[in-house]
Amino acid sequence: MLRIGNHLPSSKGYLAMAKHATKLNANTFAFFTRNPRGGSAKPIDESDIQAFLAYTQEHDIDHLVAHAPYTMNLCSAKPDIRQFGLNMLKDDMVRMEYTPNQYYNFHPGSHTGQGVETGIEQIAAALNETLTPEQHTIVLLETMAGKGSEIGGKFEELRAILDRVTLQEKMGVCLDTCHIWDGGYNIVDDLDGVLTEFDRVIGLDRLYAVHLNDSMNPCGSHKDRHQKLGQGCIGLEALTRVVNHPALKDLPFILETPNEDEGYAAEIAMMQEAAQ
Rank of each mutant, 00 (worst) to 15 (best):
E169G: 05
R37T: 10
I151G: 07
Q272Y: 03
G115K: 01
D189W: 02
Y55A: 11
E121A: 15
A18E: 09
A145Q: 05
G220N: 04
S110F: 14
G113T: 06
E117C: 01
S110P: 13
L141V: 03
T112R: 15
L64F: 11
L212H: 02
N213L: 09
A41T: 00
H111C: 09
K12R: 13
A247V: 10
A54G: 14
G119K: 04
L212K: 04
Q57H: 14
N101H: 15
M17A: 02
P133G: 04
L175A: 09
E150K: 12
T33V: 06
A51C: 07
A21Q: 09
L175Q: 07
R82E: 07
G184Y: 06
P36Y: 02
T28S: 12
L248H: 01
A145Y: 02
E121P: 05
F198M: 06
K228E: 14
T33N: 00
H136K: 14
R95Q: 00
A274E: 06
W181T: 10
V242C: 05
Q102T: 13
N25K: 15
M271C: 01
T112M: 15
S149M: 09
N6A: 15
G13A: 00
T112D: 15
Q50P: 03
V94E: 03
P69D: 07
S10N: 14
A238F: 07
C174I: 02
L229G: 00
A126E: 10
Q135Y: 08
L140H: 01
A265P: 07
L239Y: 03
C75N: 13
A274W: 01
G172P: 00
H226E: 08
A269Q: 12
T166S: 12
V139E: 04
E237N: 12
R34G: 13
Q50T: 13
E117F: 03
R200Y: 04
T196C: 06
Y104T: 03
I161Y: 08
P43Y: 00
G85D: 10
L195C: 04
T71H: 14
Q57C: 13
Y264C: 08
N6V: 15
K78A: 11
L251K: 11
L191I: 07
G153C: 06
R95A: 00
A160K: 10
V165W: 10
A21K: 12
Q122L: 15
V242Q: 07
G113K: 09
D224K: 01
K249D: 04
L89G: 00
I202E: 08
L255C: 01
M271H: 08
G119C: 09
L255A: 01
F253L: 02
Y55E: 08
G148A: 09
T71D: 11
S76W: 11
D214R: 01
T118Y: 06
D224S: 06
P43Q: 05
F31E: 14
Y208M: 06
G5W: 09
K90I: 04
L239I: 00
E142Y: 01
K228Q: 15
I254V: 05
E260W: 08
V243S: 03
K42T: 06
Q83C: 11
N105I: 02
D91G: 12
R164L: 15
L64T: 06
G230A: 03
M93S: 03
M144P: 01
L15C: 02
R164D: 08
F32M: 10
L53E: 12
L64G: 08
G148V: 02
A266Q: 11
D189M: 04
F155C: 05
G38P: 03
